[in-house]
C-alpha cells in the first residue's frame, strides 16, 4: 500500500473530514505503518500514551480492567482513530487495545501530531469541532441518563 491508499483511508476517518489532501499525505508520511497479527497488543491500560492509532484494516478489541479480569467493552473498527485522547492531554491509556484479527495500522506519535496541529491550524479546528461534537453528544447522553435516573 502506498501513501495514496493511506490517504484514501484517512479521508474516511471522521476526524479528518474537512482536511485537504496534501495535509493528509503529510500526516500519512510522518506516521509509521505497522502491522499487528491477531492477539497482539497495541497498547495497555494505565501506560503512558505516546501515539494514536488509525486503523486502516482489521479491528481491535477495546478491553478494560475489571475486578474479574479484562473485559471487552467495545470494538474499534476500520477507518477509526483510537488513542487520540492520550496524545491530546497527558492521561494514561484508559483502555487496552488488542488486535482482534490481522490489522494494518497507521501510528502517529504524539510529538508529530502536535507539531502538525501547530503547523496547520485548520487541522486543529477540525479536531476541535469533532471533539466538541463528541462532548455535546456526551452531555446530552448524560442529561438523558440523569433524567432517566430521576424519573424512575
Amino acid at each position: 500500500m502506498s501513501l495514496e491508499t493511506e490517504v484514501e483511508a484517512l479521508r474516511k476517518v471522521p476526524l479528518f473530514h474537512g482536511i485537504d489532501e496534501t495535509k493528509l499525505r503529510l500526516l500519512a508520511f510522518i506516521s509509521d505503518r505497522t502491522e499487528y497479527p491477531a492477539g497482539e497488543r497495541l497498547c495497555s491500560q494505565g501506560e503512558e500514551g505516546d501515539c494514536a492509532f488509525i486503523i486502516l484494516s482489521g479491528s481491535a478489541d477495546v478491553l478494560v480492567e475489571t475486578p474479574e479480569g479484562e473485559k471487552k467493552v467495545a470494538e474499534a473498527s476500520e477507518n477509526s482513530i483510537v488513542g487520540e485522547i492520550a496524545i491530546l492531554c497527558d492521561v494514561p491509556r484508559t483502555a487496552s487495545l488488542v488486535a482482534a484479527n490481522n490489522m494494518d495500522v497507521l501510528t502517529v506519535s504524539k510529538d508529530d501530531f502536535l507539531k502538525l496541529l501547530k503547523e496547520f491550524p485548520d487541522i486543529s479546528l477540525e479536531v476541535m469541532r469533532t471533539l466538541a461534537l463528541r462532548l455535546e453528544r456526551t452531555t446530552r447522553d448524560l442529561a438523558a441518563a440523569r433524567r432517566g435516573a430521576t424519573g424512575s
Binding site: 501513501l3 496534501t22 499525505r25 503529510l26 508520511f29 510522518i30 508529530d112 507539531k115 501547530k118 503547523e119
Partner: peptide
C-alpha cells in the same frame, strides 16, 4: 518531488522536516 510537495508549506522550525 513528493518531499517538496509535502514539506514546502511546513515551516523549518517545526522539526517535521528533519526527522521524516
Amino acid at each position: 518531488e513528493t518531499m517538496l510537495e509535502l514539506f514546502s508549506n511546513v515551516s523549518g522550525d517545526s522539526g517535521l522536516l528533519g526527522s521524516y
